[in-house]
Each structure stands twice: as structure tokens, then as C-alpha cells.
Amino acid sequence: MTPEQRLVELGIQLPTPPAPIANFLPWRRVGQLLYLSGQGPRDANGKISVGRLGRDCSVERGYADARSVGLQLLATIRAAVGSLDHVEAVVKLLGMVNAEPDFGDQPKVINGCSDILVEILGERGKHARSAVGMGSLPNGMTVEVEAIIQIAEGH
């Protein structure tokens, strides 16, 4: 089953990719590599999910926010190359968590993004990853994730 078929099977509608909030591109392609700028969680109206893990946000909420970012990353890939079926591999994720200094569950939070990528892309979605805590993130968002994607030859 292709990634696009998997989305249909699961009844998942990808969100509209968010527009950059500053002077940068949402993605940049170099050869077969697609570099995705960092994205934070947004609801259907574009409102950013804010909060700090270990203070006013649970791991479960962070996981859900990271999952929503994964869906946004998939939407950005589709916008860049036309179809998720052109993804050869998710090469690397950098997941950043807005967290208190003593918070240590960054990997559990970023699993939300990793899990949805593997759910939709299968083996192609498995990736190298860093999950780190940050003292703050833009606009107070809970998580931010950037990615490097390999696109299949000829696409």
C-alpha cells in the first residue's frame, strides 16, 4: 500500500501547510534531499499550541502536538513534490521540546511525530532523530520539528 492510499484508508486529511512566519522558505530541495523548516503545532484555524512541558503541559499533550506537526510535515512534503508516494526515506528529524530544565521525556514527546511518519510511510518513515529540550521556542509553542527527506529519483 502506498502512503497516499494509507492516508485514505486511515481517513486522514492532511492540513494546509503553514506559511513561514519570517523571511525563510518552508522547504528547500537540493538534489534528492528535501529540507523542511521547523514547524510547530497548529489547530485547524492556524492557532499555535503553546505551553511548557513539565510545567503546564503533559507528555500526552506534547505527543499529540508532535503528531500534528508530523501531519504538517507530510503536507509540506506533498506540496513540495506532489505526492507522498515520492518519498524514498525520512532521513533525519530534529525534535525540539519547550521544556522545564528538569523535564527528561523529550523522546516520548517527539515519538508523536515519529509514530505518525512510520504509520503513513511505513519503512520509508523510519529515521535517525534527535529529541532535545529547549529553554523556549518561537511564540511559546510546545514543540518544533524539522526534517530531512530523501525523494525518489525522477521525482
Rank of each mutant, 00 (worst) to 15 (best):
G135K: 02
L94H: 13
V90D: 00
E100H: 07
L121G: 09
D105A: 15
E123I: 08
V90P: 01
S130K: 11
D105C: 05
L93I: 15
D102P: 00
M96T: 07
I110G: 05
V91Y: 07
H127F: 08
L117E: 09
D102L: 06
E100M: 07
G133W: 00
H127W: 00
G125F: 09
G104F: 00
E119W: 02
P101I: 01
I116Q: 05
V97M: 12
I116N: 04
V132K: 04
V132I: 14
A128I: 02
G104N: 02
H127T: 09
G95A: 12
P101S: 06
E119H: 06
K126P: 00
V118L: 06
G133C: 01
S130V: 13
K92G: 04
A99N: 10
F103E: 13
V132R: 03
D102K: 07
I110D: 06
G135R: 03
A131D: 15
P101N: 01
V91R: 08
V97T: 14
E119L: 14
A99H: 03
A131C: 15
M96A: 12
I110V: 14
D102Y: 05
G122N: 10
P101K: 06
E100I: 01
M96K: 15
G104M: 00
K92D: 15
P101L: 01
V109C: 00
E100T: 15
I110M: 10
L93S: 09
V118Q: 13
G112V: 08
S130H: 12
V97N: 08
G135V: 02
A99I: 02
L117F: 09
K126W: 02
V118E: 15
K108V: 01
K126C: 05
V132W: 01
D115G: 01
N98V: 07
N111G: 00
V90W: 00
M134V: 03
K126T: 13
A99T: 07
I116M: 04
F103P: 12
F103D: 12
F103R: 10
V118M: 10
N98I: 06
K126N: 06
G125S: 09
I120F: 10
M134Q: 15
F103W: 14
P107Y: 02
N98L: 05
I120T: 13
G112M: 09
H127Q: 15
V91H: 13
I120W: 08
G104K: 03
L121Y: 10
A89Q: 14
L121E: 08
L94T: 14
A131W: 04
